[in-house]
């Protein structure tokens, strides 16, 4: 049974582990990049700290909900973690299954340079992970009962780097499953074909591509720093501004820019929107604030009610349709 020390250690790891998005080093870099953007907009650097550390943002009901969700989820997942599918289990299963599916175990890339397989593995893992993030994210927006849970993240009225952890536990479980599938498939598949030559290219314990993404100010996505990339680059990489557009409460911005790092997935599925010169006016699910929308009971409980309503409606429509079809069938018969 996890205790207080485990919770404390889990919280500390969130900020001190370079493989985590909100690692203090990345937060500091985001602050530096934010300062450069601030000055590039012709504003004095003297006003920057006050703007960044504004109580209006960091102590808003939305931000306070972020903090509460962060702590509650850390505790909750300490209990849930042993029950989640691990990518090692999946990788081992796939590795063994590939023996059965493929007649003889091939030795691929025997003459390739030593560095090529780790690079290929790391790149494949990054691409598959980025696509899986896009695809699940898109599904979260398009499937009504999934949206019921994902809207907890979108209900943030102000964006702080900690909003990245504003996630309903049901969504957290799905994310863990996504990670297990992506990592398990990549590890199991690569080890089967390339054996012991597979390795991960790491920088301070993090996938080199993920590290670069975080180094480039990934945390600015959930801030009010409207950092745009040139339009041509926004067709390849999702800029912080594009992600802020994704969080916009304006209906014309809905269901756009699902991508995490690469914009190519949005281009393929027709959901890419390059950033506009001006930042979105407001963030959230609706334009108007709803009473109690930042309360924990609403954030944790209402998705279940909404999902239940959606499912009930779906069952009812199906039943009606089946009845109608049967009725018509009898009429024709």
């Amino acid at each position: 049974m996890p205790g207080f020390n485990d919770v404390l250690s889990s919280l500390t790891t969130t900020f001190l582990d370079p493989s985590k998005r909100v690692f203090v080093g990345y937060l500091f870099l985001a602050a530096v990049i934010g300062a450069l953007v601030w000055m590039a907009q012709g504003r004095s650097w003297r006003h920057y700290p006050r703007a960044v550390l504004s109580r209006r943002i960091w102590w808003s009901p939305s931000a306070r909900a972020d903090y509460q969700i962060l702590v509650i989820n850390q505790i909750l997942f300490l209990f849930l973690a042993p029950w989640l599918l691990s990518h090692l289990t999946l990788a081992t299963w796939l590795f063994e299954q590939l023996h059965r599916w493929i007649d003889t175990r091939p030795s691929v890339g025997l003459g390739w340079p030593d560095w090529s397989i780790p690079i290929l593995f790391t790149l494949s893992l990054f691409l598959l992970d980025d696509f899986a993030r896009f695809w699940i994210h898109r599904l979260m927006h398009r499937v009504p009962w999934l949206w019921a849970f994902h809207q907890v993240h979108h209900s943030a009225r102000v964006l702080t780097p900690l909003t990245v952890l504003r996630t309903h536990p049901i969504e957290g479980v799905l994310f863990s499953l996504r990670s297990a599938v992506v990592n398990g498939v990549c590890i199991g598949g690569f080890v089967f074909f390339f054996d012991s030559r597979v390795d991960l290219v790491l920088v301070v314990g993090s996938n080199v591509f993920v590290f670069l993404f975080n180094l480039a100010g990934s945390n600015l996505r959930h801030t009010h720093c409207y950092l745009r990339y040139p339009a041509w680059l926004e067709r390849w990489l999702i800029s912080p501004a594009q992600h802020q557009v994704h969080h916009s409460a304006e209906p014309r911005h809905f269901d756009r820019n699902f991508g995490a790092v690469l914009a190519i997935w949005d281009r393929l599925y027709g959901s890419l929107l390059v950033s506009e010169p001006t930042a979105p006016k407001r963030f959230g699910v609706t334009r108007r604030r709803r009473p109690g929308e930042q309360k924990l009971v609403t954030l944790y409980g209402s998705p279940f009610l909404q999902a239940a309503r959606v499912i009930r409606r779906w069952v009812s429509v199906r039943t009606t349709t089946i009845k109608q079809v049967n009725k018509e069938g009898r009429a024709h018969g």
């Binding site: 997942f77 952890l165 957290g172």
Partner: peptide, 21 residues
């Protein structure tokens, strides 16, 4: 024969992952 699977798995985060996009 399974060691590489385990060492690679250890290098990657497993279990809870609530980072959103």
């Amino acid at each position: 024969r399974l060691g590489n699977l385990e060492s690679l798995s250890e290098q990657l985060e497993s279990g809870a992952n609530v980072e959103n996009d």
